[in-house]
């Protein structure tokens, strides 16, 4: 019993870290632009399939491939902001929802054209044996996932707290007008936010690649779950998002373990609807959501 529970916990934490990283992407973008990018999941997909090609296909060493993929995907995010978001004349939410949904379908289509409909997998980052803890197995890839996720979140945290650019981004998030008055170029901050957010999406895709089947249509579900995690923890909060990710991951794996695996995806959506209805500020941050 304890062994089972521990096993579910491990897999929950592993998935949770991934959801958390995706959630951070949503949150960051939201806090600096008040936009929710429905295409975020597709950047996760690009990250995973990018790694499949560069590391699995071309045999480029992992750290280099990692870096190339993250930068490549972030550049796509950058272009997306430039070409689609910036050009909108009347940026009301309904228009932006449709545009980002359009982008999501578009990117998925590109994914399908590039990689076909097959599913790919890559080996774990290192081939250590699983660690045995009270009978439960902890995979080395799980440790990689949680480690890398935390590493990037801490990096982001330091970026926002310690660097001038990071502080400027927060200022932009708090008030566009005030930021403009103090001479912070808010347009460039929005671009940077897209760059970082989609980059985080790519990181999530890369670390999940070894433990899942990667295909062109993997992004939507992951994106939605990331959004769910972000809402759980409080959209706009860095640590809230990560925490939301872990909560979702653990609940999901417990649900799968003790009820039925077919309901796995439904759990996230029930949680999402529940949180939207009951506590839209997230469980930690009781901040009012502006668009209510």
């Amino acid at each position: 019993m304890l062994q089972e529970l521990l096993q579910y916990l491990f897999s929950g934490i592993t998935n949770g870290a991934i959801y958390g990283v995706i959630a951070v992407g949503f949150s960051m973008l939201y806090s600096s632009t008040e936009l929710i990018n429905f295409a975020h999941g597709e950047f996760v997909m690009l990250g995973a399939l990018g790694l499949v090609s560069l590391w699995g296909g071309l045999g480029i060493p992992l750290p280099v491939a990692f870096l190339l993929v993250v930068i490549g995907v972030a550049v796509v995010g950058f272009l997306f902001e430039r070409l689609a978001i910036r050009t909108v004349r009347k940026p009301n939410p309904i228009v932006l929802v449709i545009i980002t949904v359009g982008a999501s379908i578009f990117l998925r289509g590109i994914g399908m054209l590039t990689w076909g409909k097959d599913a790919y997998s890559v080996p774990p980052f290192s081939d250590h044996d699983p660690i045995d803890l009270a009978g439960a197995k902890l995979l080395s890839q799980s440790i990689w996932i949680v480690g890398i996720a935390l590493f990037f979140v801490i990096l982001l945290h330091l970026f926002f707290k310690k660097t001038l650019t990071g502080k400027a981004m927060i200022a932009c998030a708090i008030s566009k007008k005030a930021a403009w008055l103090t001479g912070i170029p808010s347009e460039r901050m929005v671009l940077l936010a897209f760059f970082l957010s989609t980059g985080m999406g790519a990181v999530a895709g890369i670390i999940i690649a070894p433990i899942t089947m990667c295909s062109y249509d993997m992004g939507t579900m992951l994106g939605l779950k990331g959004f769910c995690a972000a809402m759980l923890g409080g959209l706009g909060s860095l640590w809230g998002s990560i925490l939301g990710g872990f909560i979702l991951g653990i609940l999901e794996s417990l649900g799968v373990g003790f009820f039925s695996s077919s309901m796995k995806d439904a759990i996230a959506f029930f949680l999402l609807l529940l949180i939207l209805y009951v506590r839209p500020g997230g469980i930690i941050m009781a901040k009012d959501i502006k668009r209510f």
């Binding site: 429905f38 929802v97 939605l224 439904a266 959506f269 839209p280 209510f292």
Partner: peptide, 22 residues
Amino acid sequence: TLKLSGYYLGMGTLGFGMIVHI
């Protein structure tokens, strides 16, 4: 759901659609 607006209504209805599909 209709208490929500904009993005949240989008996500809410999307989630609902997913559940029904499941």
